[in-house]
Amino acid sequence: MTPVELTKCDSASPFAKGGLRGISTAQPCAIDVRGLNKHFGDKHVVQDLSLQVRQGEIFGFLGPNGSGKTTSIRMLCGLLTPDSGAGQCLGYDVIRETAAIKRHVGYMTQRFSLWEDLTIRENLDFIARMYGMKNRTQAVNAVLLKLGLEERRNQLAGALSGGWKQRLALAACMMHEPQLLLLDEPTAGVDPKARREFWDEIHQLAAQGISVLVSTHYMDEAERCHKLAYIARGKLLITGTIQQVIASQQLVAWEVSGDGGLQALAAQLRALPAVEQVTAFGSRLHVIGTDAAQLDAALQPFRQQSAFQWEQIDAGLEDVFISLMERHTRQQGAT
């Protein structure tokens, strides 16, 4: 399957060196890479990755575990060298100018990677020194105040809870005022309230013109992104806005609701060739297919059963991704 490309960037990016950096004429690209490949041994971890992220855009990066999300992000910020491919990050070459990229990009690792045996303040101070910040003390104090960590600044980072660690890590990668944030599953294991606050902050940053590439497993987070990309087994399967992604798959969805007997019904429905997915949600089932006419015909006999209510609904993002992945797996199996 060829990736559906719905994004095009302006070729004359103002991020290009010598250009008017930061002044938006058309929407410039913060990330513009084409054909990136990465192998680990004989494993082809990332295959022909092409990605365009515009300035001020929140770009969601989705895909199952081990699909190559982290590897892709590491290639974008210069931590891994691509085997082939080319492109730019903030106008700097991703292969030759990694030093410049590191100075202007904020990267938040999947695992908490600040120093647990340093205090919050010492961690921030160290990061500030590494970026050679001039008004270091002020910057660190400002971050502490903003995070509400003033009181606990002398506490060891290792003693923080998951939510606080994540906020500290975000603050640390934001301190040098990067124009592009690469966030690798930043909200894994964080409670819903903290997650919402985190996303509010991401939106504020985007409004200031900072571009964000964020990988996640959560559909509610995916829905808060301007644009999405879905990657499976190292291959980018689709990119686009939520509406574009959903529309492109042309899924037909039915919701069945009723009390009791839903499990038996689900088993029967799964056996139908026209039905692609059957998912249970409490006392409801979602039945998904790709061909509206075939699905309609196949479901006709079941809809006569009076015990359940049938209603056609819009397919959700999750349905689209699961459908995409299953089709991709089938294709891989076939070849």
Binding site: K102, Y107, S113, L114, W115, M130, C173
Partner: peptide
Amino acid sequence: ERGTFENLLATPA
């Protein structure tokens, strides 16, 4: 081992 090397590498050091 602690994973902090990734953070150190991501800085311009």
